[in-house]
Structure formats: structure tokens, C-alpha cells
Write a protein that binds this DNA or RNA. Sequence first.
DNA 1: CGCCGTTTTGAAGACAGTCAAGATGCGTGG
DNA 2: CCACGCATCTTGACTGTCTTCAAAACGGCG
Lengths: 233, 233
Amino acid sequence: MRVSTAKGSTRCKHPLCISKVPIFSELGEEELTRIASLIRQKDFAKGEQIVVEGTDLGGLLILNHGQVKTFRVTADGRERILQVLSEGDFIGEKNLLAGHPLTYSAEALTETRVCFIPRAEFLNLMRQYPDILFNITAELCRRLDRMETMIQLDTTDVSQRLNAMLIEFATKYGESSEDGILVNMPLSREGIANYIGVTRETVSRKLKEMEEEGIIELIGNRKILIRDLNTLR
Amino acid sequence: MRVSTAKGSTRCKHPLCISKVPIFSELGEEELTRIASLIRQKDFAKGEQIVVEGTDLGGLLILNHGQVKTFRVTADGRERILQVLSEGDFIGEKNLLAGHPLTYSAEALTETRVCFIPRAEFLNLMRQYPDILFNITAELCRRLDRMETMIQLDTTDVSQRLNAMLIEFATKYGESSEDGILVNMPLSREGIANYIGVTRETVSRKLKEMEEEGIIELIGNRKILIRDLNTLR
DNA sequence: CGCCGTTTTGAAGACAGTCAAGATGCGTGG
DNA sequence: CCACGCATCTTGACTGTCTTCAAAACGGCG
């Protein structure tokens, strides 16, 4: 899974690609260059831990490219995935805005590059460009909605949760083809299990069931073809 | 359950009691009076629906007094409580900040008074006093943390979820006494069930179990005495 | 093509859900 | 202030779904 480097925009030749980040969308060329100077970047290999729950990050982390899962670990040692982040998403909002330590851990699902902006610098930036805080807040609202939806789904049976996950990933990572929507799953079976709060065995069984019903087709371990999206709803 | 009207502060004689609201904490007397003029207030009886999921509120609702539950209804008709709100908490943040329709319904648990500030007015206010947005955002971070915690808890068994709920309500609504902490529960058994995502029968059985173990004592349907808070953790 | 990690499959068991009946608490009116 | 009646809560027996543990199959990478 390689990321194409040429994307039309000239600024994307800049190694930090700040312009991709939605929270900076209102800023001009000059400001973006200034921000770029504040940034330190770091690369992570697939499977590497990026941040750990409970620690103090001291700034905001912005995904430059790659996919990252954020998760919490339960008292009995199970992992629960909260989100799958992609390019432009951020980590550490609560630390930045409310001074709280990180409320989740994060791990790279693919090769990943992240940009770090120290807290003090970012607060300055927000004072100068109030739209940045507004953009971040809007994203927080979206996350809140997602978390509320997950809680709502946890009150239902496994099939409904699987359906919701398939619809979500189909929207985010699916490509339409003649036979339906081909989804490149960002998560393994175990990842799916940790995302919807069940065991991997249950995921296997339920997906097989759905395949037998003709709703989906399992292609290897990382691709799912959704034959009919409407049946899922 | 009657709310005392005299609370020491002189401004509290003002019917709207804006000064109680944390998100306006940085404002002076004059601004508070100005805000008060923008406000319409409304009273709700216990059990009344305050807002409905999916509708457009057109502003922010701030609790003046009383207790309110916010909840979503699942596809199969079950209710899942997201939060119990009290004095100073707000409803409709996603509508205000991101233009989204309400993501949850709300119902009064006690007699309740709410203040409504129309969206346009509130956005103006935020432009003049940037701290307001900051305060709201900090509260959003706290809610996000809570929602993440609920998702994490949903991955564990019922006992752990009950423990977490008892600790939370003990902190918020408990009074220390010689025998332990006496908690005035804001929710019925069914409410507790909808809060932690199980059936009311299961709540009954688990609470009884805890009583037999000597951890808690059930006093009627709305009071719980926590003998030893440490055993819960 | 072969090997190792991941996934699937099977059987048995546990936990919470369901349905139904009985008890209790609590607000109401006398 | 007490007694009544309804709503809420408790209790019991049974069922179903998901988990657990173990072994076999698969697929993806070198």
C-alpha cells in the first residue's frame, strides 16, 4: 500500500505537507511555511507504538500519512479500538486543550509519518488564527458523535455492530466495482474484534454467516467485497 | 426534591443565574447581564422530554437547575443513557459548533429549568469572548474522555461497569457518613440498566450480590450506601 | 514451495437475556 | 398518619449468544 507523492498541488512537494491538514485549511502559503518551521516529524513502522495512554504528550500530533489505531486497554487486559485515523487526523487534543494526559494509546497500522507541534507554539498559533480552534472543535464534535454511536451500538447484538463497521469502512476505504464495493480493510480479524468489542472467533463466525447469506464475499484476510450495501442497513 | 433558592451569592437572586454556568466563568457582571437579556427560559416536569435526537435545536441549552438524562435509542428500541447532566451543563454543542442536528435526546429526571441562547447570538458572544469557546471545548474534551471510558467499560463484564457507575455517582451525588458514602441515585433501576447497557433484572441481581458481599447496602430504591469505596476499585 | 502467523472451525461452558410471577416501595387519597 | 393501589423492582427457571480452549486449515511472505 504505497502513497502516491504527486497529487497535483505544488505544496505537496514540501516534505511536511501541512496543506493536507484540515485544521489549517484557512491559512495562506506564508502561515503554512511558518508553521512548518515549528514542526518536528517522525516515522513509525507498522506495528510500532506511537503514544501511550496516560503519558503527557506536550503538544499535538498530526498524521502526515499512514493509518493509525487508537485504543484503550481494559482492566482484564483486552484492547478496545476507539478509532482508525488517517492522513490529517490528530492525536492529543485533550492534552492540548484541557491539559489532560493522553486518554488513549496509538499504534501504527501501516508505515506512518507524524508531525509534532509543541503545545506552547500551538496555543500561540490558535490565538493568532482563531479558525484553527474552531476547526479542531468541529472535529471533536464529530468524534463525540462517533463515540456516542459506538456506545449505542454496544447495546445491540454483534451482527448490527459488524454491519455498522462494514458500512463505515466501505465509505472510507471502499472502491466501487461491478460486483459491489471492494473494501480494503485497515484491520485484521483480531483488529475488527477489538473494534466492535468481541472475540476474533466470533468475528470469523459472523463474517462466514454473512458470506453464506450472500451479503459479502471474503477475499483473503484483508479484502471484503460488499455485494449489497442496502441489505446491511 | 426541592431546590433551595438562596445560595449566598447575590446574583443568584437573578432568575436566570447565569453566573452558575462554568462556560461563562471569565465574564464580568455587565456581560452577564447582557447575556441574560438574550436568554429564554423554560421549565420541564419530571419525565418530560426536553429535546429529541435528530432535530435542529437552533442554539445552546444550558441547565439552570435539575437533573437531565441524555440518551440514544437503538435499532431494536432499547434506550442507552449517555450522561446525567446537572446545573451548568449544556445540550446542543454539536448543533452550535458544527451545525449538526442533535445526536441525542434528553429527558428531565427531576423538575428542571433550562436556558436557551439562540445560535447566532451565541456565535457573536464567542467572537467577543474567545474564552467561552475555550471553556466549551474543554468540556467537550471531558465528555470525549467519558465516552471513551464507557466504550472501554462495555468491553468488560457487568460487575466492573456497575462498580464504575457507583464510583461515579458516589463522587457526584454522595454524602459521607459514619457507615460509608450515602448516594442519592439520580436513576431508577431501569435507568441504571440503560446507563450501563444491561437489563434491569441483571442490575437487581448484581446489586443484591454486592449487598450480600457486604460492599453496599440498598436503602429503598433510590439510595445506596457504599460501605467501602476501596473494594469497588 | 515451504513455513509461520493468522484465521477458521468445533465442542463445551458461562454469562446475561427473556419471560413470567411475586414482592416491595412509594405516592395518593382518605 | 395510615392504608390502599399501582408502578417498580425482585426472583426464578430457561434459553440463547458469545466466550473459551483446543486443534486444524489457510494465506501470505520469504
